[in-house]
């Protein structure tokens, strides 16, 4: 993560760096610059800019506009770093193109959360141009399978490109896809939701621990989601064949995808407020 602080005060940059180090952000590189023209994609893809919202408001607005304009191709996230007494003018910064506000004095976790939220928002914005031809069938299939087999209404939330291989939950079903298009599909959730789903499928009371039966049930859910999505994608370049699902458990487990294949994550929420994700990585074989 590259964090660029645009400020006249070197001490502000030091505070940001200290807070992020305290929050143990991995691969952290902090830079402090005084002029917006110095910010031109120097941070690469995994980068965020914090603009110190202090002093002349019109100058701060100009700075935000300059950073946004200079980096419009990379959709660089810009956050405002504002004290509470300056919060009355931050709306102008947001209007100029900033996507969030971090309040000073900076709390390490709030800073990390703010940066993560901004990066995710920017990624989602970029994803609006992604080809949804193969994503929508997975969304629709997820809704149908949860509703039909477990009597649960699920709502699609965010959709974004996966940045790392750590999954959301502590239990995940994984299925390889092959044929005219190839890749993988993953469903990941917390154990509590997996227990509820499988119990609902079997019309039983939920258990308390992940058993082989729960893993099997989650694999079958993934099987049905993939099967229905596959049928919707028949006669398209994204048509694929499914395989036998496998289930992985454990805190913060990782699943690697084939390099160069974009992996799209769809956040879902059940009517009881439980969250889970579907992650789809699919490329037409002809483009290999």
């Amino acid at each position: 993560m590259n964090v660029i602080t645009l400020t006249k005060h070197a001490s502000t940059g030091n505070i940001i760096q200290g807070a992020l180090q305290q929050a143990q952000v991995p691969d952290l590189h902090c830079f402090t610059v005084e002029n917006p023209k110095d910010i031109t994609n120097q941070g690469g893809d995994d980068c965020v800019v914090l603009v110190d919202w202090e002093g002349d408001t019109s100058l701060c607005v100009a700075y935000v506009k300059k950073v946004v304009e200079n980096n419009k191709d990379s959709n660089l996230p810009v956050l405002l770093l504002s004290s509470k007494q300056n919060s009355g003018t931050t709306a102008e910064g947001l209007k100029a193109g900033a996507c969030g506000i971090i309040t000073k004095p900076v709390e390490p976790q709030a800073l990390v959360d703010g940066i993560n939220a901004a990066c995710k928002r920017i990624t989602s914005k970029q994803n609006k141009t992604l080809n949804v031809e193969f994503i929508n069938p997975f969304i629709e299939a997820t809704r149908t399978v949860f509703s039909t087999m477990a009597g649960m209404k699920v709502e699609r939330k965010d959709l974004y490109l996966q940045k790392n291989s750590t999954l959301f939950g502590d239990i995940s079903g994984v299925m390889g896809l092959s044929g005219e298009a190839s890749g993988s599909v993953v469903i990941s959730m917390k154990s509590k939701l997996a227990l509820q789903i499988v119990a609902a499928m079997l019309q039983e009371e939920p258990g308390t621990e992940i058993t082989a039966d729960v893993c099997d049930g989650l694999g079958e859910i993934l099987n049905m989601i993939s099967g229905q999505a596959k049928a919707s994608l028949a006669k398209t370049k994204y048509y694929f064949q499914i395989s036998i699902p496998t289930v992985v458990t454990g805190k913060e487990h990782e699943i690697k995808h084939r390099q160069g294949t974009p992996s799209i994550v769809i956040d879902f929420e059940t009517d009881k407020g439980e969250k889970f994700v579907i992650q789809v990585s699919l490329t037409p074989s002809s483009s290999d």
């Binding site: 087999m149 499988v198 499928m201 079997l202 082989a212 039966d213 099997d216 049930g217 694999g219 079958e220 099987n223 036998i244």
Partner: peptide
């Protein structure tokens, strides 16, 4: 069926 869950359903 290879799924015990599906067999039970």
């Amino acid at each position: 069926d290879d799924s015990t869950t599906m067999r039970r359903i």
